[in-house]
Structure formats: structure tokens, C-alpha cells
Design a protein around this nucleic acid. Structure first.
Lengths: 339, 339
DNA sequence: ATGAAAGCGCTAACAT
DNA sequence: ATGTTAGCGCTTTCAT
């Protein structure tokens, strides 16, 4: 059996209350006793049983995070940001993957409920208002929604300013002197449209017109992003009036597009500048170091962590709290090399 | 307050024992009562408090997994394999990241101890025998070690057959007709050496000699793997007797090496065949679909999950249990295209 | 400065 | 077929 308070108490001829008080830093214990207790606690490697203490106190000092997948660098940054933020307040973060599956997500939610986590953070696959209402009602556990789903019904959420993503990329290319900026855009989802709006906004800010010929839509997604980027670039080059700047929905599309361009003999960045999106650690450091948009995963996590802490502190009745994270441009050679 | 057994009992004019029995599927309850109870349980969305039940039963039906990082696709596969395996036995998996930091790892271990998980699986950063002994002594919670650290002192572990990794890659190239096989090898660690032994073993199996000129050592790791692969290839091309097959320690190195080769006008795979390692989902699907070695993350996870279940079932005193996972070759165009 | 009693939500063992 | 009792390890409250 593992060591319990009672064991230490017996060992030291004290009551378990005294041990408990020492461990929780109560002040009404003599320094001598404190020292004796702490010494023995270390020796025996006592680790408190959270199940037991939470039963009494109603808190586990634990937060749950549900991620659609555990293998994505961006989500790892989000998790790290949360962890870092809640740790200093004495909370531990535990994570589950919903494996991009809504039923699995539902089960993980229940796991965390039954584990009595003090707050739940979720990068959810759900989009329905019903879901958000269900999550926030009845139970009085704070739930923070993180990510890009339209979370109108969510009381507390953190998301990235998606319009800025498109705006920043385009703005950068314009400032680097590009006149004809192509966008290999994402799917017709809320996020895809917002980024696209940002792109158009930047163009008109500078008095440039939006040319339909310079926008390439999503094609069949089964083909993979690399091929998508490659093929899109080939299409762009087949049209009259070649672009001098290209931005893409993902870094992988940019890699594909750059490959297509350079196999057509185009010099990067001299003749054509590229901006990807996602700041993928692998893809940005390859042949043409890729300028990309950092979606601020760590900051998203930090803000989400802070929202969670605040919700716990205020008894989860503090109304709505929302945070928007600004994406940042990370310049590299693909767009920013010397001319 | 959330719904408790007591609430349902009061609501239905039954004792909480009856409710508890129904929920745990005991048979000594009339079908009529069972139905009534289940109905109300659903309506009230009752979710049991694991803290409370575990205090009584001594188990949480929960396992903990500590990963050095949460953002790596391979580790995600491991986690998915564990999850899948232990779920069917009624266990939930919860994950923590040690962020590649030994102190953090230690803290996460304590978190899981205090959460009373029924088993701990850990892709550990630690290598010392002292660590493994500490982990396995005293506490009677099963600990399963997963991964590539030399785990001699570990009672239960799962790892990949690293020598096979090198052997398989080299064997494949030989069978594809390569005579001069270069290895852009990994660092001088246990794993790096094992794979290298596999490479040499395969060569001598076919009566080919190991040519020091065809092996490139790790250089400064700060430069990044892409550049490493690129530069290594350039070096190989600068020597007399160009290779006709190249294998690398990681997929990224293969991508770098292929870029170098093709910028020297070499045709892939006609003039030179490439095999990477790691089956990276991004890198294997790029310009030259890359033949790679799948390290069987999912299978590693499944085996680890099974070890954990067995250890729990046998009271964790069942001696040592070890499993070795065989890597698999995944053929793609970089090595296997038509001549 | 220290400790005794009660109880958090649940279940094992034993009544009825 | 249903209920009672006691107790898991801890902390809150109230003595001493």
C-alpha cells in the first residue's frame, strides 16, 4: 500500500491532522514539528491522494484539455501555453485526444467530468449551438472553447484573428513590391472565407484590384496539400499575367507551389515571392526557407489558461470572456531575400 | 452541485445502493427497477465521481501516459495505439507532456501518482538505472517504459527493433539493384549505432563491403536536419565513386539529400534511390514521394497497452515483460519507381 | 500548538 | 430484490 497521512502520523506519534496542516502550510504548527514532518514526508516519498482530498475540498487542482489530435505541432504549442499558465497557479493539465471523432470527443468530455477536473478546455469539433449550450449549462464546471470553429454560442473562447492572417500575408507581399498577388486559398469554410477577406482587404487598402484570375480555389482534398499547391501554381502559370507574389492557405501548399514555380525556371524570391501559413517547423526550414504566418499557438494557450483560471476564481458565473489572438508574420527567404 | 447517487435515489424513493448496483450492472435488481433507474440517470445526465469510487475500490480505471512532446506524429500514433487497446478493457488514457525536460517529467509522474492512475506508461527521457529502479520499487503501480532509451533496468518495456530499421532500408536498396549504398547516419547514440549496425549487417549479408567513404556522420545538429541532409549529399557527391542508393537517419535528411542530388542534375530514382526513416506524414508525400521506414508507433502503443493491462491484472508482480516491434518498409517513388 | 469527530460520494460485505 | 453499515484518505470545524 502506498504511504498515507495516517502512516506518517503514526510514525511520528502525531495526529494525521497535524501532518495535513503542515503539508498545506497552515501556520498554527510549531516550526520544530513542521521540520520533523517534512523530513519524514520526503523520506517516505509521500504523495497525497487527490481523489481523497478532492472529495472533501471539491477541487482537484487539475484541468482537462481535449485536442482533436495529439500529433500536430500547433496544438502542442497551444497545450504548452495552457500548461505554463495554469501551472504557476498550482494546476496540472491533463490531455486527451478526440482523434478527430465527435463521438470520441463526447466520451472524453465525460471522462474529464468524472475525473472532476476543475476546468475543461476544448479544441472542439462540434459546431452546433446546442452543443455549446449543453456544455455550459447545468454543470458548474467552466468550459473554455479554443480554436477556429464558429463559437457564437460559447461563453468563453479564444480564437485566432483569421482575417488578419490573410491581411498580414498580403500586406507583406505588397510592401515587398509585389503587384500581382495570387492566393491559393483554402476551402469554403468560415475560416477559409475570413482569410480570403483579409487578402482582399489588404489589396484594396493599397488600391489594388482583386483579380479572380489570381485566386485558386480548393480542389479535391484527397490529393494532398502538396499536390494541390503544385497544381494550383501550374494553373496560375498557364494563365496570362504571371503573379509576382503568391500566398497559400497552408505551408505545405506553399512548398508545392514553390516546387512548381522553380521547375518552371522561376527564381525565388527574385522573380516570385511566397508566403505560407502555419509556421510549420518542418516545412519552413527547407530548401527555400519559407515566410509564414505564425498563428500564435502558445499565446492562444496562455489566454485560454488565463480564462480558465479566471472562470474558476469567479465561480464560473462571470459572464462571457473572449480573446482574439493576432497572427504574426515570420519573414524568411522565400519572400524576403535580397533582390 | 452536480447530480449524485443520493439525488437519484431520493428522486426514485430507492436507496443509493440500488442505484449503484444498477449502474455497475449487478444482477440482483429487478428489471423494472433497472429500467426506472437508467431512465432517470440519463435524464439527469448523471456522471459518476471517480474520486469517490476509486477511494473505495482502489482503482480509477484510468491510465497515464507521459510523452516528451505532444506535437510529434509518431508519438500520436503510440498514444492512439495505447488508447485503442486499453479502452476496450474499460480504461481511459490521459496524457501529459514532459516538454523534453527531465524535471518536468518528474513532476508529471507525481501528478499521475496523485491522480491514482492504475498504470503509468512513459516515453521517458531518463536513462539511469536508478531512475528505473525508483519507478518500479515501493509503489505497486505498474510502470511500462516505451521507446528508445536503453531500458535494461526496466521490468516492462516496449521498443522498436532499431537494428532492423537499418537492415530493412539497406536490404531494400540492394534488392532494387543498388551496389553503392550511402548512409547519412544519425548521432553516436545507442539508437544511432544500432541502426548503423543494421546497415552494415545487410551489406555483408549480400557480400558487399562497408565503405567508410559512403557513410556520413552527424554534423552540428543546430543547423537543422534539412541542411544536414543536403550538405551530406554534397559531400558524398564530391567524393570519387558516387552512390546509387542513399539511406538516411530521418525523413527530413532524405528530403535534403534528394534536393542536393537533384540540383546536381541527378534523376531520382533512376540514377539514385532514396530511403528515409520515420514515415513522416508530411515529408513522405512531397515532391519525390519518399520510401521510408515505419517505426510502427501504433503497434508499439498496442503492445504497451497490453503490457499495462496484463500488469494490472496480475497485480504487477508478474516479472518482466518486454516487447520488440519490427519496423516496416513503406515503398514509394524515391526508391521504387520504374526504371 | 495539537487533535477528535464528522463527512465528502461511493461501494464491499453483510443484513433483511 | 432491496437496504444498512462502515470506511476508503483526506480536510473542515470545532475542541482542547
Amino acid at each position: 500500500m502506498r504511504v498515507r497521512l495516517k502512516d506518517i502520523a503514526k510514525d511520528l506519534n502525531l495526529s494525521k491532522m497535524t501532518i495535513s496542516k503542515v503539508l498545506r502550510g497552515q501556520t498554527d504548527i510549531s516550526d520544530a514539528t513542521k521540520a520533523r514532518v517534512m523530513k519524514r514526508v520526503k523520506e517516505l516519498k509521500y504523495i497525497p491522494n487527490i481523489s481523497a482530498s478532492s472529495l472533501r475540498t471539491g477541487q482537484t487542482k487539475t484541468m482537462g484539455l481535449i485536442l482533436p489530435s495529439i500529433g500536430r505541432p500547433y496544438l502542442a504549442n497551444v497545450a504548452a501555453g495552457i500548461d505554463q499558465t495554469v501551472n504557476v497557479a498550482g494546476y496540472s493539465l491533463i490531455v486527451c485526444s478526440s482523434q478527430d471523432d465527435i463521438d470520441c470527443e463526447q466520451r472524453q468530455i465525460e471522462v474529464f467530468f468524472s475525473l472532476q477536473v476543475d476546468a475543461l478546455l476544448i479544441v472542439s469539433l462540434q459546431e452546433t449551438a446546442a452543443f455549446f449550450e449543453q456544455m455550459q449549462s447545468s454543470r458548474r464546471m467552466p468550459v473554455i472553447f479554443v480554436g477556429d470553429r464558429p463559437s457564437r454560442a460559447a461563453k468563453s473562447f479564444v480564437r485566432v484573428h483569421e482575417e488578419e492572417v490573410g491581411r498580414i500575408a498580403c500586406d507583406h507581399l505588397i510592401r515587398r513590391g509585389c503587384k500581382r498577388i495570387a492566393y491559393i486559398r483554402g476551402p469554403r469554410t468560415a475560416v477559409g472565407d475570413m482569410r480570403s477577406n483579409g487578402y482582399r482587404g489588404a489589396l484594396s487598402e493599397y488600391g489594388l484590384s482583386v483579380q479572380p484570375d489570381l485566386v485558386v480555389e480548393s480542389m479535391s482534398p484527397e490529393e494532398g496539400e502538396y499536390k494541390h499547391g503544385y497544381d494550383a501554381m501550374v494553373r496560375l502559370l498557364g494563365r496570362s499575367g504571371r503573379p509576382d507574389g503568391v500566398m497559400t492557405y497552408t505551408d505545405m501548399m506553399a512548398v508545392g507551389a514553390m516546387d512548381a514555380a522553380s521547375s518552371h525556371g522561376i527564381k525565388i524570391p527574385e522573380e516570385m515571392r511566397f508566403v505560407g501559413c502555419g509556421e510549420d517547423p518542418l516545412l519552413c526550414g527547407m530548401r527555400f526557407p519559407l515566410t509564414s504566418i505564425d498563428m500564435g499557438g502558445r499565446e492562444v494557450g496562455q489566454k485560454a489558461g488565463r480564462l480558465a483560471l479566471r472562470a474558476i476564481a469567479s465561480g464560473n458565473d462571470s459572464g462571457t470572456h473572449r480573446a482574439l489572438v493576432k497572427p504574426k508574420l515570420v519573414r524568411r527567404k522565400s519572400s524576403d531575400g535580397l533582390r
